[in-house]
Each structure stands twice: as C-alpha cells, then as structure tokens.
Design a protein around this nucleic acid. Structure first.
Lengths: 210, 210, 210, 210
DNA sequence: GATGAATGAGAGTTCATTCAT
DNA sequence: TATGAATGAACTCTCATTCAT
C-alpha cells in the first residue's frame, strides 16, 4: 500500500550530482519552461524539499548546468590547444581533427548540448549573461585559431576572423541539432568532419596556401 | 477611478492584424511559453475576450504567425527563382545577390524571424510539424540551388547537397541571431553578404569552375 | 465568401417565437447552464443583439419558457376537468384515460418537459418560485382529483391526498424521464397507462395475497 | 492587511475527507455547474492548489462523490438482503421496513442524495455512465425484490417488474426531493413509510370500491 | 539532512451582456 | 429593428516555492 519513498541518505555531493543529472535529462527533453520541478525530482527520485536544499531555485539549477558544461568545455579546449602545439603539418588535416574532436565532445554531452541549442537564443533574459559567456568561449576559440592560421599564411587575410568564427559556430549548431543530436540518429561523425573540413578549408584558405 | 478601456470598434481584418502583429512582437521578445495572453492583449490594446474572437487559443496564434511567415517566405523564394532564370553570368555574384536578398528579407521580418530562431528547436512538440515544414522549405531551396550549380559544373560533385544546405542554413541562422537581429545593431548587410559569398563560393566551387 | 447573415426582418411575435423555440430545443439538449446564448442564436439564426431585443437575459428566456409551458398545462387541465364532468362511470377507466392524456401531453411537449425534469430540482434559486408554481399546479390537480374520488368512496380515506399526489407525480416523472423522453425511444403510451392505472387503482398485491 | 491563511498541515486522508465533504455540501447547494472550485476550497478552508493535490479536476471530485455514495449504497443493500433472508412473515410489514430503511439511508446522506437527484437527469454527458450505474443498482434491486415477491405469489404476475421498479424509484425520488430533503423540513419518516407501504402493497382502491 | 503537504499568484479560456453602427 | 464586434469578470487548472515535521 505504501509506495512512499524511503528516506535516502546520501553524500551531499552525490545527491547534488543526481539532481543535476536528472535536471539535464529533463531540460533536454522538455526545455526549460516546460520542464517542472516535479519532473526533475521524479527523475532523481528525490523529495521536493530536497531539491531546494541543493538549489536555490529552478533558475539556479539551470545556471549550475551551464557552469558544469562550461567547465568541461574549457577543459576540452585546453586539451586541444595542448595537442595543437605538439603537432605541425597539414592544415586541412589539423582542421579535420579539431572538428571531429568537437563533434565527439558534443555527442558525448548530448543532453547538455541539446539544452544549450534549445535555450541558446535565450528565452529568459536572466540567462543571457551565462549563455553569452559560453558562446563567447566558443567564438573566441574559433576566432583565435583562425587568426593564428592567417598569421601562418594559411587563411586569407581578407576574411574577418570574427565573422568566420560565427560562420563556423553556425555550421556546428546546425549540424548538431539537425544531425548529431536527433534522437535515434546514428551519423558517421568522421564523414561529417571530412565534408565540413573540406568546405571550410577550401572556403577560407589563401591562394598561397594551396 | 474608472480606467476602463474605451470600446474600439474595428474592421475584423484590421483587428486581427493588430492582434497578430502584437503577438509577433510579444513572442519575439519573450518566447512562446513566457509570453502570456495578457502580454498580447496589452500590446494590442484589446480586451481579453477580443483575442479569443480571432484566435482559438494561444497555440492557434502561434501557428497563424508561422503560416503568415511561410506565405511570405514562399513568395520571396518564388520571386528569387524568377529572377535567377533571367540572369546568367558570374556564379559568385549570383550567390552574393541571393544571400543579400535573404538577409534583407529576414531583417525586414525581424520579429517573426526571431520567433523562428527562438522556437526552431521546437520547445513544444505540438509545433514540430509546422516548424519542420518551414525548415524543409528553406533546406529544399538551398539544396536545389546547390544541385543546379553542381549540374552546371560550378560546384564540386563530391559535396553532398543535403549537407551543404544544412551548413548554409546554419551560417544564416547564426549570422541572423548573432548580428542581424540583435536589437540596436546596425550591420552593413552587403558587407556580410560579400564575405559569406566569398567563403561559400570558394569553399564549394569545383576546380574546373575557377 | 460572405457567409454573413442577411438582415432578416420579421414580425416581432414571429421572431420572438423563433428565439423561444430555439431556446427550448437548446435547453432540452444541454441543460440551462451548459447552454449558451451562442447556441440559442445559432439555432434561431439570429444575431446576438437580436436576442437581447426580445429577452432581458438568459434567465429571462428560461422564465418565458416556463410561462409558456404553464399556460399550455393549465389549458390542458381545464380541458380535462371539463371532460371529467361529462363522464361518470368506471373509476379505473377514468383514471387510465387521464393518465394517457397526461402522457400524451408531455410527449407532445417533449423538449419543454425535458427541461422541466432536468431543472426541476432547481439548480438556480432564482427559478425556484416559477418551478414551484408549476409543481404546485400539478400537485394540486392530482390531490383535488384524489380527494374527489375519496368523496365518492372510491379511494381509502386513510391515505393522505397530498402524499398521494406526490407519489403520482413521482411515478410520472420517472416514467417520463426514463421511458417516454428518452431520445429514439418509442413506447406504447397506452400500455404504460394501462399498467400505471392498474397499479394505482388496484394496487400491487395479487388477489391471492389478500 | 495580511489575511493570509495559516498553513494547516493534515494527514492526507483527513484532508481528502475535508475536501470531499466540502464538495458534497457545495454541490448539494449549488449544483455541479454553478459550484466553483472557489466555493469548495472556501468551504474546506484549503488553498486552491491543495484541492488539486487530491483531485485531478472538478469532474474528478464529482465522480469521487458518486463512488463514495455507491459504496455506501451497496453496503446498505447487502445488509438489507441479509436481514431479509433471516426474516419471514408478513409481506406488507417487510415492505414497510425496507422502505423505512431506504428513507433513513437517504436522509442520513442528505447532501449526497440531493446531488444525485439534482444531477440525475445528467446535465453533463460525461457523468452519464456513473449516474446510470447508480440508477441501475437501485432499479435492479427493486425489480429483483418485486420478482421474488411475485414468485412467492404475493404480487400479481401481470405487472412488469421493470416498470414497477421505475414506479417505485419515481415515488422515492419525489418523496425525497419534495419532503425528506427539503432543508428545515422534519417529516416523520415512519408515517411516510406507512403510507407508501400501504399504497404499494394494497393499492389505492378502497375495499368498498371493489 | 530529508520529506512532502500546503500555498497562492497567475496562467489560458469562456460567455453573458453591451453598444456603435 | 437588426447586427455582431467588443468587453471583462469569473472560471478551471498549474507550478515554483515554503515550511512543519
């Protein structure tokens, strides 16, 4: 008769992680506004009050997700920079490898990426700063990389690195939401990376670089 | 004490337009779920009941907006096809003109475009069909154009038209949401079109086409 | 394209009749509260404002229906009294004839009767007086008849005429709502009248049971 | 200024009962459609949200009330059958006892009975099944009892048990709504039962009238 | 720390009634 | 007289948040 939840004592960090993961899954499926606290606590098998022990509000848990993601993204980008330093050689191959690494990263964090794409255009102004910061990180990275390739004479100087970073980010977004993150969709990421690298390389390289 | 609204008698078509325009503005600013009927009727200076005289529900206005937009978009694409038929000549210049025409179209329908970008990732499953249809129109158009350029030997055959259409749409989305639609932003659309055409042309043209 | 109603000029009495009849049909089908003015004017093919030209309010049209019905009922009862005066003879046969006349009357005014049965228990206190008056007419008539049969030695003096009138009315109500007014139901009214008269006259015990 | 309700913490079962009882009282007084959730929560001294913690919708409480009543009614009928089995003897006295038991039952559940009588003619089609089921229980019981008395030679075989059950139910309804349930009305239930039993058993004709 | 019953502001929707034409 | 667009109070229902246990 009693299907009451038993009191579940957990290490605070573990409990927080459970709630955060549940929130990621729920927001990915329903979007921020359609998702309810009830959805999250049901997914986390926690009591209502417990949620508010770990997060100040619905907004707060969303921001925590963004933080989490930003940390992982930064880590990945740091790694990439380290790799890049060790390798010289064919610009196009380097580009392809980078693209593939990114695609794999986003595929690995499918739900968080879905949330980002869903809410990227900032449905709530309160999230604008956090989302802008994330976008900034990606754009800065892309622009920096483009500039460094320009410096090495690989890319045309006539192209604006800022604009190019936007174009690249746009292509990524679209690829992700249309192909990679579609539930039940299995794309060959390396084929995607090939074609995207082919297009982006030919599109931007300088004549001298040929 | 009495700040009752004066009865504003309007022709049904005019009143419907007012409400639809108000809804577009409100949805663009707040997104579908955060926007309330109260917001819309306040913006349209209409009574609550009046809204429901013209639209069955909140969902209904939203779909009406999509319909409206789809009609305009189709009209624009039809026009473009007509223009393309009359003009031959430099592929890159043609591309640039098309891009510019699209950018101008979206800038002219700034709010509706904002809504589309905001809700494109379909926060509500009920809108999926209508949004998918719109996306389809754009993707089909882009793919068709790419294929016709491939047929004329202008674009590399190794590139998938479907994928290319996604990439182009992605670049557009990003440009629009990051630059064109930012409130208070004044970009030179022709500069944007130049760079985008430059990148897209070099990126995809066949060697033979040089 | 225009499915606008043409201005229909009618004699006021005819227009009022149209609206009243429409209201009877609508109230019978939906009940007073579920029925809307929209339903009524749609059924009467009249404009919204026209309704309020002839009736002060929704309540008003309902009371008008009761008035109408009361007039017809009184007429029928007067007739019955006249008939009764001319005929002497077998009490049971008289009873049967009366019952049959009543059943036919209610069947003829099927919709109005349905309304009465539906709303009889007075969902809105504002209708209590009018409904009570109608009930009174029926109960008084039944009690008066019972008393006159008692006076003629036909009925037991130990039975309260008031109570008997209630019992008879109750049997009528039930028969009407369960059998006679069921849509698509075709009962032989004379069979019903036979059994009801048999029961009411002779009682239910078998001769053997005496 | 702050007339905010104090938080009243209750055991769920107790709270549900409070709400259900309040709903019964409100529906009895106003009828299903006129009654509002505001009425119910005011009567139960609960917050709006609390109501929806225990019932899915307005329709849901109503059905819960019917369920509740049906359970009690079935219990009472079961009891009656048990009693009947133990007692033999005078048919008329048995009938009288049964009638009195029913009258007392309905008087004890005055509000629920009122609701049933008010909504019996099914103002909302959604309730038709539940109401029909209740009516069925009563009619079946009455018909079964009549048949068993016919089998014992107590009742005339020429009378249709189905019809008789309707007549008996009709008399009950009328008695209940006109006499027993009238607020502030105190009737002697045993006198009522006497007369009804007398009528139903022996019929209305006087011995002299034979 | 954990629980879940309780809260009420605010959402979308309906509809009797009014009134300018 | 007839019309139908306009109105807003009142309705049912949702859900982020609180707090007594």
């Amino acid at each position: 008769m009693s299907n009451k939840r038993r009191r579940r004592l957990l290490h605070p960090d573990a409990r927080r992680r459970e709630l955060l993961d549940a929130a990621v899954a729920v927001f990915a499926r329903k979007g921020y506004r359609r998702a309810s606290i009830s959805d999250i606590i049901a997914a986390a098998d926690a009591a209502r009050g417990t949620f508010y022990l770990y997060f100040k509000s619905k907004e707060d848990v969303f921001l925590a997700i963004l933080d989490d993601f930003q940390a992982r993204l930064s880590a990945m980008l740091g790694e990439e920079a380290a790799v890049a330093a060790t390798r010289a050689g064919d610009g196009r191959a380097l580009l392809r490898d980078d693209i593939l690494r990114w695609l794999r990263f986003f595929e690995r964090h499918r739900d968080a990426t879905t949330i980002l794409l869903k809410e990227a255009t900032s449905i709530d102004p309160q999230f604008e700063p956090a989302l802008a910061a994330l976008r900034r990180i990606a754009l800065d990275h892309l622009a920096r990389r483009f500039r460094s390739m320009q410096a090495r004479g690989l890319m045309r100087a006539s192209l604006s690195p800022e604009l190019m970073s936007h174009l690249q980010l746009g292509m990524f977004d679209q690829l992700l939401s249309a192909l990679v993150l579609r539930p039940g969709w299995k794309v060959k990421l390396d084929v995607l990376a090939d074609q995207l690298a082919d297009f982006a390389w030919s599109g931007a390289r300088s004549a001298a670089g040929e």
